[in-house]
């Protein structure tokens, strides 16, 4: 018998590119956030509501991940922000290499904040670092309050849990208390904000959380002057 020592991480390739992305973003003082959830939890709807609030004070760019198509990128492009669509071609998550080119473009442009909208999936995106500062996850009340127990890694990774579609709470058996307790079993420090993209509830709180994180990460409490108004 002859043992050949390998000792390498199976995600070493991804992690190396993620580290490169993170360094490029850090050099330019760009705050990056990775938004993840199951399909249909409301990532794009949240961004449609949230990004205008952030864009009033920061220059925001978006990298949009979908398996196929550009429907979400088209929705977000209507906000007048630079949006790069990435089609993963069947892959169930964004990885660091897929977004590397987009990150390169963003760091050479005039951005303060980069938002990755990941592919809708509660499993795989959690394992792939993109080089972001923070992971934010959405759980919509129609998905059920047991999800933190079933998909622990995603909840462990996220700094913020957005409980979305709370306008539908009365129509479901979803217990906010059970969901939050389960999320905090997996991740005691996780912050929770309840939102509804239909009524606008909680969106300003999410914006405030992101701004707090920008300040914390890069010591930039005071925003730069607002960007010039864009057409469209």
């Amino acid at each position: 018998m002859h043992l050949i020592d390998v000792q390498t991480g199976l995600l070493a390739d991804n992690d190396a590119v993620a580290a490169e992305n993170r360094e490029m973003l850090a050099k330019r003082g760009i705050y990056a956030v990775n938004v993840m959830s199951a399909p249909g939890a409301g990532k794009t709807s949240l961004l449609e509501r949230l990004l205008p609030l952030l864009a009033a004070r920061w220059r925001v760019a978006v990298i949009e991940g979908d398996i196929v198509g550009s429907a979400d990128a088209e929705r977000l492009a209507k906000l007048g922000l630079p949006v790069e669509q990435i089609n993963t071609g069947g892959a169930c998550h964004l990885d660091a290499r897929m977004v590397h080119h987009g990150v390169h473009e963003v760091v050479h442009g005039p951005s303060d904040v980069l938002v990755f909208e990941n592919v809708g999936n509660l499993v795989c995106p959690a394992e792939f670092d993109l080089g972001e500062d923070d992971a934010v996850m959405l759980l919509s009340v129609t998905e059920g309050h047991d999800k933190p127990k079933k998909y622990p890694l995603m909840f462990r990774r996220a700094g913020l849990l957005v409980l979305n579609k709370v306008d539908l709470l009365a129509m479901t058996d979803f217990s906010v208390e059970v969901a939050v307790a389960a999320a905090r079993d997996v991740h005691p420090g996780i912050e929770v904000i309840k939102t509804s993209c239909r009524t606008g509830e909680g969106i300003a709180d999410v914006a405030a959380w992101v701004e707090g994180r920008i300040a914390a990460k890069h010591g930039r409490a005071a925003p730069p002057p607002p960007p010039p108004p864009k057409a469209g």
């Binding site: 018998m1 050949i4 995600l11």
Partner: peptide
């Protein structure tokens, strides 16, 4: 999530 070693004949 690590690749530890390869076991081959001597």
């Amino acid at each position: 999530m690590e690749f530890v070693a390869i076991d081959a004949d001597d």
